[in-house]
Every structure is written in C-alpha cells, then in structure tokens.
Write a protein that binds this DNA or RNA. Structure first.
Length: 858
RNA sequence: GCGAAAGUGGCGGAAUUGGCAGACGCACCAGACUUAGGAUCUGGCGGGGAAACCCAUGGGGGUUCGAGUCCCCCCUUUCGCACCA
C-alpha cells in the first residue's frame, strides 16, 4: 500500500471490508437473540442443519464452505418468511483431545474447550447466523447424561448387550473400533494402520434389529443423494437364501458333527461337489487336531486372505485351498462331498462355510478347475432341455437366472424353475430338519465400548453377587472424572482410578466395580440434532413437543465421508426413539446434501503438502464476505472446489464494485420526506414509459431475481446465482457510464434495494451495510425476498440465430411475439443468409419459437 | 472385476427440456484516468485464416434439419463396492 493517504473523495467510495465487518460484528454481538428460532410460531418451520464439527483447533476451508451453504439457505428461508432453526454445536468427545493431552500435558477438557471457544469466535466472525442459545456441547454432563440414559433404555429393551467376541483393534488409537470404522482393513483415522483382531468383552447395540427397516426406509429418502442411499444399501447387505446342514462323515470333533452352510442358490445343491470352509472356521481346528499337517497350510491361507483385505484388491490374490481329507454328506442326495479349506471363504459372512457348485458359480468354477474337482451341471435354459454332450462340459454353464431355466439331475426337483426349486427345497429342508429359508445381513451389531478416557462413561456396574447391574436412572450422570493420567497403554485410563472404579451395588449394596470403558463418540452425534430443539431441558433429553414441531430436519448438509457412519447410526437412533414414543418421525432428515471437498493445486489441503489456506488468513485479507462468497462461487457446491487465491481477489473486487455503486447512488433511495407519493413512484416504473436503457435494466433485474430464486429452490448452483448478480452489476455500470441512461430515481432505488436483498444470503456484512445506507430501518434478515414479475422479465425484442443446414449464417431481430410465419420470412430475406440459398432449393424451414431458425436446402 | 459421477479455452467453470458452445470470474493483452498503480473504468481474449470462411466440448461411429446434451464402442480420472456364497 502507498504511504500517502488516499484523497478524501475516493476514500468515501472505497470498499473497506474490515471497517464494515467490524461494525456489524459488534452490533450483532450485542444481540444474542438475533437468530433465535421461535418456539410457538405460526409461520411455517424450516430446520436447516450443518453437521456439527469436532473441535480440532481451528476451522478449515471445508467448514467454511459447508457453513456458507447452510447459512445462505437459512437466510434465504428467513427472508421468505419461515421460522428457521439454524443451530450449531460441538462433537467434543474423542481421541485427539487425549493425544493432545499426552503431547502438551493439557487436560482434554481444557484443550477441547479452548478449541471450541476459538472456533466459535471464528464462526461468529464469519457471520454465520446460528441460534447460539441452543448450542450443544457433547462433552458436558448436561448432554452426555442423556447418552447414559439412552443406554439404559437400550439395555432395558435388550438392545444393549455384552458379549465376548473378536473385535477390531487399532493399535494407534489403543481402542476397539466398530465395523463401520474400519476402512480397507485399516483404522478410519489411521489409514496406514491395519486393524488387529482381539478377543474382548464389549458392549454392543443391536442395530441389526433395525436392519430390515433401515433398508426399507431408504426408499423414502428421496431427498438424499442416490450415492449415499446405495452405499447404505450395500452396507446393510441383505441377502435371501437358505441354511443347510451337511453331516460330517466319520469322527466328530469339539465343534460338532455337522457343517452349516448359507447359500442364496439352494436350487443348485445337487450340483455341489465340495464344501469349502473359511480358514478361521472352528471345524478347521478339529481337523488340525486330528491331522496336524494341515495346520501350517491353513495358517497360510488365512494370511493370504488378510493380506487381500488390507490391499483391498481381491483380484490380486489367487484362489487357494487345501483338502482336509474329510467328507460331508449332501442331505438332498446322500453324496459324499470332500471338505476343503479355502482362502476365498470369509468367516464373518454367513456361516463361514459354503457349498461349492462349480457349474453355476464363477468362483467355485475357478477353484474346481484349479484342483480338478468335479463339475456337475444341474440347471439348463428352458430351450435346451438336453444334457450337455461330453465334450461341452469344459465351459461353465453361467449364469442361469431364476426365471428362464429348469433343473436337471436334481432327483425329485427335476423340471422345476429355479425360483420354484428354491422355495420347495427350502421347505423340504425344513420338513426334514436339516435347514430352512433365511435372510442374512452384512450389517453387524454396533460395538460401542472404547478403552479410552475422553468419552461418555458407560453407566454399568459389575457386582460380585448380582453380576451386571445398570446404574439407576436417578444416579445419572455417571460423571467423567477429571485429573486423569492419560496413556495409550495399560487399558482404559478410568480403570486406574480406584475412586471411580469402586462402587456399591445398587441391588445388594455389596461391592461392585464400575465399567471403565467409554462410549463410541458416534453415540453423541446420533441424536444431537434433537437436543437443539430443547437444549436446556434438565429432566429429559428433549421434549416430544419441541422435537415433533421441528422434525424431521428439512435440510441436512455435510460431507459424504459420513455416508455410512453417522448417517446410519443416527437413522437407527431415530427409529429407537420413535419406538420409545419420544418422536413421531422415523427418519431424521428428509433431504441430505453432501458438499464436495475443498482442494488446492489438485490435492486435499494438508500441512505436509503446504497448500493450506486458512479462514483466518482470508478474513484478514479480504473479509468474511469475500471468503464466503468465493467458496460458493468457485464451483457448484456438490463438486470438489479447487481453491485459487486469485479467485478470491476477483470476488473482493466484485463486492467493491457493488459497494461503490450503491454508495454513489444510495441517496435516491432515501425517502426525501415521510410522504413520498407511492403512486408517482409506480408511474415512474411503468415499463412501456421507460427509456430503453432503463427498461433494459428493469428487465435484467427481474431476470436476475428469477435466476437466483430458482437456484435456491432447485439445484443450489450458487455459482450461477452469483454470476447472475455480477451480470446485473455489470449492466448497472455500463448504464451509469452512459450518463445514467435515463434511469428514473424510483427504478434506481428499486435496483439497489433488490440487489442488496439478492446479496444478503451470501455476503451478509456488506448487505447489511448497504441496506442501512439505503435508509432502510427493517432488519435485513427479515426483509422480504424480492419477487420477479414475469411480464417485466420478458424481452420485447429478441435476436434469433438463423442456420442454413445447421450452420449459423445470420441473425434476425424480431419482436418477441412475432408469428412463426413472420420469423421465417424474415430469416429467408436476411442478407447474410441469402448467399447460402442462391441456386439451392429450400426443402424445409424449422422455426423453434424464440430460439432459432434452421433452413434446410438442397 | 462391478457400480456411479466426471472429461468443455491457459485456469475455475456456464450452457435446467436436443436449438447461437465458452455466461460469470481468474490470468493475459490493449486503452483511458493518473506524479504513480498490485486502485478504478473501458475494450479484447478457443484454434486456424488477410478475409470469406473453416475447425473445435476425451477418441471413434450413429440417430437428427440440428448433438457438449440422445444411442453404441473405446480411452482417462475420481469416488464407492469388491471373493457377501
């Protein structure tokens, strides 16, 4: 910046974002109820919500983008007369606070609350319109006591249970993870750290009880991105089939005398030629005990399988197996099937054992080819009811669908269609006690125990006499103690605090031990948005009346990374609360919007790449309005946004242009006296009486209002909304350049007012400043959104391109309501078009009304 | 391997239903105003060509009076799923 001061007359026109934003920031601070959602309003309600952040320290550009979208929508709905609920809170339990504690010797609570305070002031500085009176902080006992309360309700209804099982363990987090938190065999927070399996006793929530409903209700989520719905459908992974028991031939081991198999194609069971076990299948251990040589080979298969899962590329690993030398009996036809152990069979799906049907399953076919196992065809297309000739058995007979094929070589079931056979064979199995039709899911129960400190204590006691005893409701909350030494080794930190661990059994009064694990923090975020409706309730999580008024959420906005995790847990929680009678809705959010990532130089912003742009820097250089507007302008919100510093500069310039224009012309909008003649204003705006330049501006204004309003209601392509406003401003400047173009004061005033209103959802600071400059008293937040008048938006004259054989040759200007006949006459007569018609025969003239003329010649 | 989305100037991106390809912005070039400009305003800006015109939306075919948009084949990128029996 130059040292010499700017001359006074230009200083007045300069857009000083910092001065303006500071001024309004101070005003807004003085009114904590500014963005209050009304409890008993007669206006229609609108609940707009952005996913609450984890208080990691400071906001990043992804947050700014997320909240700028939500804030624009909230302000737009306010201006359209809705009673808007737009809250914010903190997902403030979690491991990073413990890591910070270890590194900086700061208690997790202190570290967390300091971050909350910093991020909250960043949000305020960015001008986001949140109802802070409803702020929710999940690490406060006022909140987490209700996590404990819900846990007790789940326990009462048998939906929380304790079980010893193999669980996912992240060595870096030093805790257990839910299945949803394992990504490609690694921890969701440590993408390079493979998850280990540990046998532990843990608390689980029976989310699988809701599997069917979670799946079915996906169909009702029409306002959700298809992508997210598909991901959830895959995750739930429903499949219909049958369980069939195969008796073991010979000596039984500890694991029993039969192998239970899950199949979706019981109709192919006469084609089964072997049984394949997962390497971890318990029967394998029996066989190894009887034949120790097997042990090493099975170990090898297991490690191959684990590796494939970590790499995440199944195709890279070849199918291997080992023959156990044992046999099982097919209950349908009594044939003996060799039992193998194979690396392509998974222990955690179905029963961990399959029947192998090489003729009708590609994987089984590959395997059978490799080890020269028998291939037996049992299904043929309807048209070819002839057994295959000897030489043709080489190729697999795949795939046969359930409708177009019939069974062969299947004893009493010959001639049935696949679907009939599935039904009849399942019935047959059930009648004879060796199987039944069933449904399996990939979705597993949600393991919520965490061997960590900074979370909600699980409200359970272990009594020497009474066993597992829930903490009575009246004793809630079980407070999380402070001053705890945090380490990543030695189990749950709470376990080292005798004053926490030692308790009295509420049943017998004897000695009891407190549960020392805490809850997965995804419990906190599973219901936080209900708490916003009644944030200070101290006798229940929230009142049904408030929740039923506000729910479901009208628009939820967040990152796609929660497509499975948070968004499936919170759907489950909603259904559970509905079953408790607390709410009426079965789904938390009607519409979901997943915004794209903010990237820079082709990569996600990260410290190691040195491509981080911080909101603080942007606010310091250009102000909050520019940062917000740019995050909406640079790309459509669902796409990734490539951050370009020069682009912010352009937005800043644009806001400066708006500011200068209004500050030059605001005077015409300020009422001269109290009795400005309304009728005289209206006469000044009659379209037909306006000079052409003024009429053009009026038309542009109404077109712009239409475009911006449409973007809000439909696609949310705010990049084009903002571009439209820029076009309007450009035209204002162009007209001003031509000495005003005869724009009457009333129109100039209206142009400015509507321009400011259009900008209000995107750049609230500047909009408020200009609104005041225009002499408006009303709070801009509740000023009515402008309406466009189709008659005024309409063009009187339009330019129509004229093509000859599809190539652009000329243009004609006609009145907007010119007849088709007139248009094609004019097109044929156009001097630019004429040369292309000379000596040719006009075959056809296509007139697309108000769009184009195409003359076809030969 | 399966599924989805995407591929348009030097860059970010427009073109909502098949109808003027490149709105808006950045960068760049020129001009105006200036003692000065990293301020502001105006104009230019896909490629080729002196021009008339020609070429151009990842590549190749097709449908159509007309295709960035629809159909078929292929290539690339991103995301999701991935031995789910």
């Amino acid at each position: 910046m130059p040292d010499n001061p700017t001359p006074p007359e230009t200083r007045e026109e300069r857009y000083d974002a910092h001065r303006i934003e500071q001024k309004w920031f101070d005003r807004w601070q003085k009114d904590p109820a500014l963005y209050r959602a009304e409890a008993g309003s007669t206006r229609p309600k609108y609940y707009v919500l952005e996913m609450l952040p984890y208080p990691s320290g400071a906001l990043h550009m992804g947050h700014v983008r997320n909240y700028s979208i939500g804030d624009a929508l909230a302000r737009f709905m306010w201006m359209n007369g809705y009673n808007v609920l737009h809250p914010m809170g903190w997902d403030s339990f979690g491991l990073p606070a413990e890591n910070a504690a270890i590194q900086n010797n700061t208690p997790p609570r202190e570290w967390t609350l300091r971050n909350v305070s910093n991020m909250k002031s960043q949000m305020k500085r960015l001008g986001f319109a949140y109802d802070w009176q409803r702020e929710v902080t999940t690490c406060f006992p006022e909140y987490y006591r209700w996590n404990q309360w819900f846990f007790l309700k789940l326990y009462e209804r048998g939906l929380a249970y304790r079980k010893k099982s193999k669980v996912n363990w992240c060595p870096k987090c030093a805790t257990v993870l839910a299945n949803e938190q394992v990504v490609k065999g690694c921890c969701w927070r440590h993408e390079d750290t493979p998850v280990e399996q540990r046998e532990l006793e843990q608390w689980f929530l029976r989310i699988t009880n809701y599997a069917e409903e979670l799946l079915r209700d996906l169909d009702t989520l029409e306002g959700w991105p298809e992508k997210v719905v598909v991901m959830q459908r895959n995750w739930i992974g429903r499949s219909e089939g049958a369980l069939v028991d195969f008796k073991l031939e010979g000596k039984a081991g500890q694991s029993g005398d039969k192998i239970s198999v899950f199949t979706t194609r019981i109709d192919t069971i006469f084609g089964a030629t072997s049984i394949q076990l997962a390497p971890e299948h318990p029967l394998g251990a029996d066989f190894i005990a009887q034949n120790p040589e097997l042990g090493g080979k099975v170990e090898e298969l297991l490690s191959e399988q684990r590796k494939a899962r970590e790499v995440g590329d199944v195709g890279a690993i070849e199918k291997h197996g080992v023959d156990t030398g044992r046999f099982a009996i097919n209950p349908f036809n009594g044939t003996n099937l060799p039992i193998w152990v194979a690396n392509y069979v998974l222990m955690d799906y179905g029963t961990g054992a399959i029947m192998s049907v090489p003729a009708h399953d590609e994987r089984d076919y590959d395997f059978a080819k490799k080890y020269e196992l028998e291939i037996r065809v049992v299904i043929l297309p309807r048209r070819e009811q002839e057994p295959p000739a000897a030489g043709e058995e080489e190729e697999p007979v795949l795939p046969f669908t359930a409708t177009d094929s019939l069974l062969i070589n299947s004893g009493p079931f010959n001639g049935l269609s696949c679907s009939e056979a599935m039904r009849k064979m399942s019935e047959y199995a059930e009648e004879h006690g060796f199987g039944k039709a069933t449904v399996t899911y990939r979705l597993k129960d949600w393991g919520i125990s965490r061997q960590r400190y900074w979370g909600t204590p699980i409200p359970m006691l272990y009594c020497e006499k009474c066993g597992i005893v829930p903490v009575p409701e009246k004793d809630l909350p079980v407070l999380l103690p402070e001053n705890v030494e945090i380490t990543l080794t030695g189990g749950s930190p709470l376990g080292r605090l005798p004053e926490f661990v030692n308790a009295k059994c509420p049943k017998c009064g004897g000695k009891a031990r407190r549960e020392t694990d805490t809850m997965d923090t995804f419990v906190d975020s599973s219901w936080y948005f209900y708490r916003y409706t009644d944030a200070h309730n101290d006798h229940e999580p929230f009142s049904s009346r408030e929740a039923n008024y506000w729910f479901p959420i009208d628009q939820y906005i967040g990152g796609v990374e929660h497509a499975i995790l948070h968004l499936i847990y919170s759907r489950f929680w909603t259904k559970f609360m509905r079953d408790l009678g607390m709410i009426r809705n079965s789904e938390p959010a009607l519409r979901l919007f997943t915004q794209g990532m903010v990237i820079k130089d082709g990569a996600k912003m990260s410290k190691s790449l040195g491509n981080v742009v911080t909101p603080d820097e942007m606010v310091a250089r250009y102000g909050a309005d520019s940062a917000r507007l740019y995050s909406l302008f640079a790309a459509p919100p669902e796409r990734d946004l490539d951050w370009q510093d020069a682009g912010v500069e352009g937005i800043y310039r644009f806001l400066g242009r708006v500011y200068r224009f209004v500050s030059r012309h605001a005077a015409v909008a300020r009422p001269v006296g109290a009795d400005v003649q309304r009728s005289s204003v209206e006469t000044q705006l009659v379209a037909s009486q306006l000079p052409p330049q003024a009429r053009a501006l009026q038309r542009k204004l109404h077109q712009t209002i239409k475009r911006v309003s449409t973007d809000f209601q439909g696609r949310w392509h705010f990049n084009t909304s903002i571009a439209a406003i820029m076009e309007l401003v450009n035209q204002l400047y162009a007209t001003e350049e031509q000495k005003g173009g005869g724009v009457p004061d009333a129109l100039l005033a209206q142009l400015q007012r509507d321009l400011v209103l259009l900008l209000a959802p995107f750049a609230p600071y500047l909009a408020h400043e200009l609104w005041e400059m225009l002499g408006e008293q009303e709070n801009l937040l509740h000023a009515a959104w402008p309406k466009h008048d189709p008659a005024l938006a309409k063009e009187e004259e339009i330019e129509i391109p004229v093509q000859v054989n599809g190539k652009l040759r000329g243009r004609i200007v006609v009145s907007a309501d010119a007849s088709e006949e007139e248009v094609w006459q004019r097109a044929l007569a156009d001097p630019k078009v004429q040369p292309f018609l000379a000596g040719k025969q006009v075959v056809k003239v296509i007139v697309v009304p108000a769009k184009l003329v195409n003359i076809v010649v030969r």
